[in-house]
Write a protein that binds this DNA or RNA. Structure first.
Lengths: 237, 237
DNA sequence: CGGCAAACGGATGGTGCTGTCCGTTTGGCG
DNA sequence: CGCCAAACGGACAGCACCATCCGTTTGCCG
């Protein structure tokens, strides 16, 4: 991907090979913090995850701080901006998604794999109001998020390819249809989690029924130019 | 609500029966206002409709006032609360929807009527960010809104009945599926209106394909308990 | 045309959120 | 055990928005 990546170590002025072992500190969250700070960092992330899930990504920072039992200053010290916090919290959920995709890739039945991954990701999303918003927030390449995303995209492409090859998935299915399902699924969040879950299940079932090769009639409208990454919101006044 | 409401007219010291002719003033918008006030009221509603469509229902009141070229006080004098304004603006769009339904009821082809109304309502919704939010806002029975809603519901029920009778609409289609489509469609609003439109069209086409009687497989999950009217949001902290 | 109530809008107090400052507390190392 | 830098959180300034007050303007009726 990046040109000259391997050659760059030669730029190091110290000719000796005694490179400190962790110049590029490993991106392990909260490394080198004091024990209490690490503890608070964890509490903040848990509180943030819960708050985002319940009330969406725009929940006040002070509410997260209160919920975590820390002062606002502590929250801002660990996560200077809201985006930092969202990215961190969402990295976990993104990892879960990636795991689901990888799991599905191991399934010998392509159609079942396809259905499973779509169903489960939507179920996750339905249980978490902030999930979709975080998708749409499109924060800049925050710390490995982009790489994970393309990994997931490639996995999905492979799932789609196999499912089409097996004949169960319609030929006019487009990868953008997955985004379509996710966006649509994000719209059905109601106040009652149980209702949301049921509605999500039914919606996904409808969509899968449309995706499955069968005697449906009529052509689909053209594919909208939606990419997983480039979704932005309206700017302020 | 308030005790003795009707009896209070007896308190009027003038014993004469010269009751003003319009005790229950007819609910015609802006009746009895001075000409400039009526003019401003109209400008406010136009500005509000545009602002709601572009930026959603939570757009600042002062932004609407600025856009209408009036002061904040004037806006609040006409519409004491945001809900008043939303209800008023949305009543218009609700009337459009009702018109679409009535039009469809005149179509001799039940399946085409069903498809048309769903497609067009979703197209309206896709062009207006505030539309869905207003649906979900669930303001109290504001001035004929509820009656209009049940009217639309009955019209939809009739459309569904005919479409099923014609054999084109699956028997396991539920009226709640319409709400499902509307909610889902509300989720696909992106920043670019053209993209939103295309995505909406494709989503609706997928849904219709699932709704149409054909060789789809598998049973649908149970119907979620969603009613057109009782959708609320999470309360504040 | 004169007067007045209706209507107007700039200005203002109140509230909630953001992001930072600073005096105090505490974990961990020597 | 004692020190000190790291960490903490209450308090605070800045800002945006809501909602109202009040002095001024204006439509409209007599």
């Amino acid at each position: 991907m990046e040109p000259g990546g391997a050659a760059r170590v030669a730029e190091n002025p110290s000719g000796a090979g005694a490179e400190p072992p962790a110049v590029r500190e490993p991106p392990i969250a909260g490394r080198g913090l004091r024990s209490d700070a690490r503890h608070n960092r964890r509490r903040i992330m848990e509180a943030a995850r819960a708050a985002f899930a319940e009330r969406g990504i725009d929940v006040p920072m002070v509410a997260i701080a209160r919920r975590a039992g820390v002062g606002p200053a502590t929250l801002y010290r660990r996560f200077p901006t809201r985006e930092t916090l969202v990215a961190e919290v969402f990295a976990d959920e993104m990892a879960e998604c990636a795991g689901l995709v990888d799991e599905a890739l191991a399934d010998p039945d392509p159609w079942r794999a396809f259905c499973t991954v779509l169903t489960e990701v939507c179920a996750m999303q339905a249980a978490d109001k902030g999930f979709t918003e975080a998708f749409l927030a499109a924060f800049p390449d925050s710390d490995g998020f982009d790489e994970r995303r393309v990994h997931v995209e490639h996995g999905l492409d492979e799932l789609i390819r196999r499912a089409k090859e097996s004949g169960r998935l319609r030929a006019d299915f487009a990868r953008e249809d997955i985004v379509l399902v996710l966006l649509a699924n994000g719209g059905i969040v109601t106040s009652d989690p149980e209702t949301t879950r049921a509605a999500s299940r039914r919606l996904v079932a409808h969509m899968l029924r449309s995706f499955e090769s069968a005697g449906g009639s009529g052509e689909l409208p053209p594919v909208p130019p939606i990419g997983l990454g480039q979704l932005y919101r309206l700017p302020g006044d």
